[in-house]
C-alpha cells in the first residue's frame, strides 16, 4: 500500500511533539556536577608514598611531561655490622598538563601503583605554565580517586587475594598438621602414663 500523502509531515510533527515530552539531555554543568564513570581520565593523581623514583613513568611518557627530581640518602645498617643501604628520596614530581595527552601510559607502567586516574577535571588555569602541577597538588588529587569498581560476578579473584589465600591455606594446613601430630603424640604417650 502506498503511504498516505502527507503522512510524512504528520510523522515529523509527532517526532517533535514526542521529544518535547521527554526529558532533556542538557547538562547544567556548573550548577549540577556531571556523573562521571569511575574510569574517567580527568587528572593524574600521585600516591607519593608508593613512588620509588624509578623514573619509568617519566621515561615512558610520550610527550615528556613528567618532571622528577630526587636525591639519594643513606640509611644506616639495620643490624650491627651490616651494610649501609641507599634509598631514593623524591624531591620533585610534576606533571605538565598542558603537554599531557592523557594516554595513561605512566599509570600503566608504574610498577608500584603510585599513579592513578582521578575523575577530577576542574583544574583550568589562566596561564599555560600554571598547568604544571607539583607533587602536593598531585597528592591532593589522590583523595579524589574513586575506589576500583567491583569485579563482575563470577570473575576470577584478584591476583593479590588469590596469592594471600594460597599462603593462608598453606599456613592453616601446616598448623592443622602440627596440631594433629601433637594430638597423635599425646595419644601415643597417654597410655604410658
Amino acid at each position: 500500500m502506498p503511504p498516505i500523502p502527507g503522512s510524512g509531515l504528520a510523522k515529523g510533527l509527532a517526532v517533535t511533539l514526542r521529544t518535547m515530552t521527554k526529558k532533556t539531555v542538557t547538562a547544567q554543568y556548573p550548577d549540577v556536577q556531571p556523573e562521571l564513570p569511575p574510569r574517567t581520565r580527568g587528572v593524574i593523581g600521585l600516591f607519593e608514598e608508593n613512588c620509588t623514583v624509578c623514573m619509568l613513568c617519566a621515561r615512558e611518557c610520550p610527550d615528556w611531561c613528567i618532571y622528577i627530581d630526587s636525591h639519594k640518602e643513606t640509611v644506616p645498617a639495620a643490624v650491627p655490622g651490616g651494610r649501609e643501604r641507599s634509598r631514593n628520596v623524591l624531591d620533585r614530581f610534576a606533571i605538565d598538563f598542558s603537554l599531557c595527552m592523557y594516554c595513561g601510559i605512566c599509570i600503566e607502567v608504574c610498577p608500584f601503583d603510585a599513579l592513578f586516574w582521578s575523575p577530577e577535571f576542574e583544574y583550568a588555569e589562566t596561564e599555560i605554565h600554571e598547568l604544571t602541577h607539583e607533587r602536593d597538588k598531585l597528592r591532593e588529587w589522590m583523595w579524589t580517586v574513586p575506589e576500583p569498581p567491583a569485579l563482575d560476578p563470577g570473575a576470577e579473584e584478584p591476583k593479590e587475594i588469590a596469592a594471600a589465600r594460597k599462603a593462608a591455606d598453606k599456613l592453616a594446613a601446616a598448623q592443622a598438621q602440627a596440631a594433629q601430630q601433637q594430638a597423635a603424640q599425646q595419644e601415643a604417650e597417654g597410655p604410658a602414663e
Partner: peptide
C-alpha cells in the same frame, strides 16, 4: 522554550 524542549534542550535558564 518550546523549540528547546522539542530538540531535547532546556533553552534559556
Amino acid at each position: 522554550k518550546v523549540m528547546a524542549h522539542m530538540q531535547g534542550r532546556l533553552g534559556p535558564m
